[in-house]
Nucleic acid binder design. Structure first.
Lengths: 218, 218, 218, 218
DNA sequence: GATGAATGAGTATTCATTCAT
DNA sequence: TATGAATGAATACTCATTCAT
């Protein structure tokens, strides 16, 4: 779980409640916060939201329970920060991948890159992301988190715009919604978990067939 | 998610652990069990698995906590029964819908019916189903429940087989996996929740475009 | 655990609360009561008083929980009956053994027989007797049970009387108390459990040395 | 219940599980732990292991239930600590008494001191010790506790060794086993509770008669 | 008589959060 | 700032006992 460095991608600002109580102005505090987030990720991953206990997080992070409340007003806020950090990592990862794309790339090439990139991220952080999705119910207080999901789709939307000519669908927002869900469900095991027999290459091929079929069908 | 082969109702028999401790032989007992399941559904819906408390269920059902244990060995078994009942309702609903389909219906017509039926069920029980899906982590002890999900996809697979000629995809299992996930993510809000602007008719149209595009694209 | 047949040994009558609610006048009832006692003994043996549950006893006995209350007003009364039955078995066993003693037997021979007989009974029902002793705290309501213990010592007292000449101790009640406790603690593992290295023959020898030393010492 | 001062007598060290979770480093914590042990002793005394409830202990100690778990991982560990404290008190008391013995004391004098000391301790803590003995079934996890009982007998063994010449019995381990059980059953009411008519002086005299008779008899 | 469903108080343990140090 | 002791409400599950059938 790589640290989040990419504060520059700040697509949507953190809302009041999500932001740490204090700006961790000092060296030590910064370290504490990141240790807590790191520990929290681990605990969230292995126990899920309900069974994540503040005491356990503190223990894993090597700090006292009280310290958690210096930077996060409550459990939900801590988990929100964890989830947010993960969303930022995903976005950053996508951006990084897209940076490698040649300027003259076709829509299909771009989509393939996106699918592969999602698969890679899923391999790294899939289970944590699943926990994050479950935790969302308890995080309604933090609309910024929901916004992040939309942000993620924003990349796809830009792609479709850039290749407007190849897209038969009239409403790009609609197309984005449809494809984001469809692709995500394939790469992240929506209802049906991916069978062992289904390898990455096949999955990529099918995802692209689904995508391009949709974009071209009238 | 249409019938498996028309087992009439009983798609897969309940395993030992899922079945209530005692067959509720008497009038009163039957009433109690259904009151408990009903109450349990409500509580599961509003609190989710972890925060569903046996005391609360008992209270809502208007029975004593001890009574719950007459019929369910533990919390997981109670929730499994709730989830199972929901799965059966979904399957039954699908079967009922498919019964209305004319014999000479095309694949597209059948798919449309399936999508509409999923949407209707989702409107009725979507949130409960979401809770059920989350609860599955705690219900590993009840393999029959996982089997139900597969059963559900089996219907789609039968549909594709029946219209083999219209399907360009070689591997039907693969196609089933892809489409089941894609359709489910659209009808049941995968990652991206359905925006208010997206009405049922549009959603059905897009789902069919996605589906038929996929099935026809080489 | 052999059935108690020896009603004739009725050394002290059962007090009001200990006696079954109803005289089991009918064949079926008699069978039920003995099945319950038998089952209760097993459950008491393996779980002890506190963890003996009426439901479990009923289950093991193959009767309904309600039936237990036809014959025993509550849990304590049931256990009291079990303990009482065991006491009677012990007494009966002792009497039976003493019946084999030749008329001209010496005190030492009689004591040896008593010790051996206690050891045999201990091997058969030692653990149950231990449970019974523990249960006594809850059975204060039934003075008859405590009386049984005294009854058991009564045999020893008779022995001492019969061999008054060989006994140096003045107060026979006192001597009975001392020896009953001492012998019992050896045969039934008082504070210190019997080490594996200590075989029956050695134990008998030492018990007799202890006994006769005491009786002869001035 | 006097405080345990005599850490120097540490006959066998506490095993991992028996030790409190945290060393109560602070003033407040130390007070809490001793309040809990004190309260626990009272509750154990009046209810026994099974009916000792953590809530009750907390209530009597004037702390919250949660606090109990700061220092004891579970109920068994709490009771083990209570039992252990009592064992240490007994041992300390014995040692203290023996300290008063003149160097040239005879075996009989030493035994008399031991019996009197056991009687005194029994008068103070007899019922609690009885509860402790019962509780042992649930404390199998803490072998150190069982070891304490052996430790107690070790004193007697040393006595016999020191006066080897006065002891006719060949096997000292055997003699220790026999006498420890016999004496304990007299001082602590083995099977037969001590009758009101039996005063301390008589009991001491009889115990010594039993003991010395045994040691001298061939 | 016998049943067994129903009760509801009782229990060990966890955990988010607070606050004195 | 940071700590970690203390809190007390919450929770799954058990069980003696009752009573309608």
């Amino acid at each position: 779980m790589p640290p989040t460095r990419i504060r520059s991608t700040k697509v949507s600002a953190l809302p009041e409640r999500l932001r740490p109580r204090k700006a961790p102005s000092q060296r030590r505090a910064k370290h504490l916060v990141s240790a807590v987030l790191e520990a929290g990720s681990r605990v969230l991953l292995e126990r899920g939201y309900e069974r994540l206990s503040m005491q356990r997080v503190a223990q894993v992070a090597g700090v006292s329970p009280g310290s958690l409340y210096q930077y996060f007003p409550d459990k939900a806020a801590l988990v929100a920060a964890i989830v947010d950090a993960m969303s930022q990592r995903e976005l950053a990862f996508q951006l990084e991948q897209f940076g490698k794309l040649p300027a003259e790339a076709t829509l299909l090439q771009a989509l393939e890159l996106m699918v592969r990139s999602l698969l890679t991220f899923q391999r790294q952080e899939g289970p944590l992301m699943r926990r994050a999705l479950e935790a969302m119910q308890h995080l309604g207080r933090f609309p910024a988190l929901a916004a992040r999901a939309t942000d993620a789709a924003a990349g796809l939307r830009l792609l479709l715009e850039a290749h407007r000519a190849e897209v038969v669908v009239a409403d790009l927002d609609l197309a984005t919604h449809v494809l984001a869900n469809a692709i995500h469900s394939l790469t992240h095991d929506g209802v049906l978990a991916r069978p062992d027999s289904l390898d990455d290459e096949t999955l990529v091929r099918e995802a692209l067939r689904l995508t391009s079929g949709y974009l071209r069908t009238r």
